[in-house]
């Protein structure tokens, strides 16, 4: 059996794959956070809960309505997006213009409500969610076996990230969004409905989190706590990348995921803290983040 640095090659590839998958979720979630923060100046602590709600929506649709994975991939983000639009419309909107910390505290409270309610109803234990029949089984890549679903998650998340990036950089709506990020008052003076834009942005960000949740459901178990523990790591990812650039958030997400996977191979004890350590180093060397700009 071939070895690399004394580690059996299949184990190494396996951990890199797991790293890529974790990185996919880091990338999708930090992307949503960056988009919301860019325009609303709110750090969306509910992001983790919205990811969890996406996974639960898929699970509940399957269990109670018999609606499978593929429709859930559309329905769950839609449902969570609608809830998010209501949150923005009736709560977040009242906090614009105040210290951004209030937005963080409000969304933290909402995250506690969602998490607590779902733990009350469904218990803390994870629930299994089977991947769709088309994506079961494994693929022989020559150097390793890859479960098809895991490959699908990596590819799908790349498409989601690329799609969001294109939406923001290349479309008219994206141009409005970027312009409003720079100067909302001026854009409104040109006749763009900025309040609506804010609502849609928050809905879109939350829907992205929910989509990540549906993708995650067959890999991790569906549990009320899956979101908040993840979102804290994503915060670290965001600090490392800086929230100035969409592309930066995506790249940082994947890279940190893979680094975490590699740590699991070479020094497993540190794997749960490696991202935080990297964050500390980045803060020492480049406080604004790798792709950030100091405000």
């Amino acid at each position: 059996m071939s070895t690399i640095f004394g580690i059996p090659a299949p184990a190494l590839y396996g951990q890199i794959l797991i790293g890529l998958i974790n990185g996919s979720f880091y990338a999708m979630l930090s992307l949503g956070l960056a988009v919301i923060f860019g325009l609303l100046r709110v750090i969306n602590f509910t992001h983790g809960a919205q990811y969890m709600l996406g996974a639960f929506a898929a699970y509940l649709l399957l269990t109670y309505a018999g609606i499978g994975y593929w429709p859930a991939l559309v329905l769950a983000p839609l449902l969570v997006g609608v809830v998010a639009v209501l949150i923005e419309r009736f709560m977040l909107r009242r906090l614009y213009g105040l210290d951004p910390l209030y937005g963080l505290l409000l969304t933290f409270g909402l995250a506690l409500i969602f998490e607590g309610a779902f733990r009350h109803w469904f218990g803390a234990a994870g629930k299994p969610y089977a991947p769709p029949a088309q994506l079961t089984g494994a693929l022989n890549l020559g150097f390793m076996f890859m479960p098809i679903y895991r490959g699908w998650v990596v590819v799908a998340s790349l498409f989601v990230c690329l799609g969001t990036w294109l939406l923001i950089e290349k479309t008219r709506l994206g141009a409005y969004l970027r312009a409003a990020t720079e100067n909302a008052t001026l854009v409104q003076a040109f006749g763009v409905n900025v309040p609506l834009l804010l609502t849609l942005t928050y809905g879109l960000g939350a829907a992205l989190a929910a989509l990540a949740g549906v993708l995650a459901a067959p890999i991790y178990q569906v549990s009320p706590l899956m979101g908040t523990n993840l979102i804290i790591i994503v915060f670290a990812v965001v600090v490392v990348g800086g929230m100035g650039s969409i592309l930066g958030a995506i790249v940082t997400g994947y890279v940190l995921g893979v680094l975490e996977g590699l740590t699991k191979v070479f020094y497993p004890e540190a794997s749960s803290i490696v991202i935080f350590v990297i964050m500390a180093i980045v803060l020492l060397v480049r406080p604004a983040g790798l792709f950030g700009r100091e405000e």
Binding site: Y102, L110, L112, I113, G116, H120
Partner: peptide, 19 residues
């Protein structure tokens, strides 16, 4: 009644109504 939910609700009320 789940305590977490109540804590979350108080958070939301405080932030929205009496900061």
């Amino acid at each position: 009644f789940p305590v977490t939910v109540l804590i979350g609700i108080i958070f939301v009320i405080c932030v929205l109504l009496f900061r």
